[in-house]
C-alpha cells in the first residue's frame, strides 16, 4: 500500500491504495469521479484521458502512486460552474456524442489538442490527433465538427482577451 496525494480539479486529495491501483481507478473509486471511463485494456480507446500536470494522458496507463504529487484535471473539472467549457459546449451543439461513454476522454483529448495548436486546426489534423480515442457511435463526423468549432470559438475568445489586455 502507498499514500497518494494529488490536486484534482483544484482540490487537494489523498488516499492509501494498493500500489497496483491505476490512476483511473483511484479517481473513480476513491474520489467518486466516475466521469473518467475505462473502455479497453490495451491503452487504445482513450475513454480514460485526463490531464496530468496540464497534459493529456491515459489514466488507465498510469499508476495512482506514480501520479502522486501531480495536478490532475478530469472531465468533472472542466466546466466553470454551470458554464460549459467551449469544447463541452461544442460537443453538445454539434451532436458530437451519442451514448456519452467515450465523450469525457474525447473532450479531454480535444482540449489538449486545441491548446497545442494555437494556430488553428484543420480536419486532417483533428482526425490524426484523435488517433488515441475510439468512438463507436458517431462515426467521428460530428466530433471532428465539434473540435473544429471549439477551436475557432476559443481562438476568437483568446484574441478577444488579448485585445482587452492590450
Amino acid at each position: 500500500m502507498s499514500d497518494v496525494s494529488l490536486v484534482v480539479n483544484g482540490r487537494k486529495v489523498s488516499g492509501t491504495v494498493e500500489d497496483r491501483t491505476l490512476l483511473v481507478h483511484f479517481l473513480r473509486e476513491n474520489l467518486g469521479l466516475t466521469g473518467t471511463h475505462v473502455g479497453c485494456d490495451t491503452s487504445q480507446c482513450g475513454a480514460c484521458v485526463v490531464h496530468v500536470d496540464g497534459k493529456a494522458v491515459k489514466s488507465c496507463t498510469m499508476l495512482a502512486v506514480q501520479a502522486s504529487g501531480s495536478t490532475v484535471t478530469t472531465i468533472e473539472g472542466l466546466a466553470n460552474g454551470t458554464d460549459l467549457h467551449p469544447v463541452q459546449a461544442a460537443f453538445k451543439e454539434n451532436h458530437g456524442l451519442q451514448c456519452g461513454f467515450c465523450t469525457p476522454g474525447m473532450i479531454m483529448t480535444s482540449v489538449d489538442m486545441i491548446a497545442r495548436h494555437p494556430e488553428g486546426l484543420d480536419e486532417a489534423t483533428v482526425r490524426h490527433e484523435l488517433e488515441g480515442n475510439i468512438c463507436r457511435c458517431t462515426g467521428y463526423h460530428n466530433i471532428v465538427k465539434a473540435v473544429l468549432a471549439a477551436s475557432k470559438t476559443m481562438a476568437k475568445g483568446s484574441k478577444g482577451r488579448a485585445k482587452a489586455a492590450a
Binding site: 473513480r28 469521479l33 466516475t34 466521469g35 473518467t36 471511463h37 475505462v38 478530469t74 472531465i75 468533472e76 472542466l78 466546466a79 460549459l84 463541452q88 459546449a89 460537443f91 453538445k92 456524442l97 456519452g100 461513454f101 465523450t103 469525457p104 473532450i107
Partner: peptide, 13 residues
C-alpha cells in the same frame, strides 16, 4: 448531453 459532457452520466460501473 449536459450530463455526458460534464462526466455526470451514470453507467452501471
Amino acid at each position: 448531453d449536459r450530463r455526458f459532457v460534464t462526466g455526470a452520466g451514470r453507467y452501471v460501473d
